[in-house]
């Protein structure tokens, strides 16, 4: 893999932010702004999962837990304390990071299949705790009552445009940080672990430590995505931490391309766009989505960006 100068990524990120922020100046479309807000949360969620799946070769079925945890931690902090939004968001992400560290400490020593199953089990345990701890979480109704005091540095996030700008900036900064981690020596180590864990181990890398670090970082960024999701729905729902949601992230990763950094973002875009377009025409969303997924899985046999990279080697990033 070529070395990617950090400044090049930063320039691309800056251009992306400017373009996305400029769009509402020319054309206001609530549906589009909604789409970008949801995409920002899901892009962080899916890209953080790909740090595990594509980069390290750790297939986690329970990543939704940290997405849900970030959302609940943030929404509860906002509802129960007088802390300002940035402080609450940072606390929520820190809390999620700590939770990911604890869950990871239990899970990362297991080999591939068992790792997938234990992450699923831990997530489902977390989900049943949300459902049964009604006094705190509101049970299966979700956390209602909204998120109060949604302003940050004079921005009123209850306004859709401001939320749009806020989510765009946070998501792009988050993706940039993840990109930096992926291209760092630590990121290279993770890819080496994926390709041949025995040799990496001979080189003196402590496998479980590196894996635990990756798991914790991925959990942290999923938590950040959860914070954005909580802002969007103004609350938190158990579905955010349920296993179909983890499945969505896996599909985003697989559809977009597991070996390309922006693959999961593209995959998230495809899934969200499909959802928006198809539900407008038919109630049988699953039927259409299933056929599209089958076409990708059986036809391309890899994600879109990975496919493009194979078709035009050297061109796509």
């Amino acid at each position: 893999m070529k070395a990617h100068p950090a400044w090049r990524d930063a320039v691309i990120a800056a251009i992306a932010v400017i373009v996305v922020l400029a769009i509402p100046l020319f054309h206001r479309s609530p549906a589009f702004e909604d789409f970008v807000i949801r995409l920002s949360a899901m892009a962080l969620f899916a890209t953080s999962l790909n740090l595990l799946v594509g980069n390290t070769g750790m297939v986690s079925f329970g990543h939704g837990m940290f997405y849900g945890l970030g959302a609940y931690a943030f929404a509860l902090t906002m509802q129960m304390t007088d802390l300002s939004l940035p402080v609450a968001a940072v606390l929520a992400v820190l809390f999620t990071t700590f939770a990911a560290l604890c869950v990871g400490a239990i899970c990362v020593r297991l080999s591939t299949d068992y790792f997938a199953f234990i992450t699923l089990a831990v997530q489902m345990l977390f989900f049943s705790i949300i459902i049964s701890w009604q006094s705190l979480t509101g049970g299966d109704q979700g956390l209602r009552g909204g998120i109060p005091r949604r302003e940050i540095f004079g921005f009123e996030l209850a306004s859709q445009l401001h939320l749009y700008q806020f989510c765009t900036v946070v998501a792009v900064l988050g993706l940039l940080a993840l990109r930096h981690i992926t291209t760092s020596p630590f990121g290279q180590t993770l890819r080496m672990i994926r390709d041949n864990e025995n040799r990496v181990s001979f080189l003196g890398v402590v496998l479980w430590q590196a894996r635990l670090r990756a798991f914790t970082i991925a959990g942290a960024f999923a938590g950040l995505g959860g914070v954005l999701a909580a802002l969007f729905v103004s609350g938190a729902y158990p579905e955010l931490a349920d296993w179909p949601n983890s499945g969505q992230a896996i599909f985003a990763v697989m559809l977009g391309g597991i070996n390309s950094f922006l693959g999961p973002v593209l995959g998230a875009m495809i899934l969200l766009a499909l959802n928006d377009v198809v539900t407008r025409f038919t109630e049988y969303y699953g039927l259409v989505l299933g056929i599209v997924i089958l076409a990708f899985a059986v036809g391309l046999r890899r994600g879109v960006l990975d496919f493009l990279r194979l078709a035009w080697p050297g061109r796509a990033r």
Partner: peptide, 18 residues
């Protein structure tokens, strides 16, 4: 990849639920 198999299976789940 295991995930490719998961993808195919899940597509079938979605299709037949509908």
């Amino acid at each position: 990849n295991v995930l490719m198999q998961l993808l195919v299976c899940y597509a079938v789940v979605l299709i037949f639920d509908d």
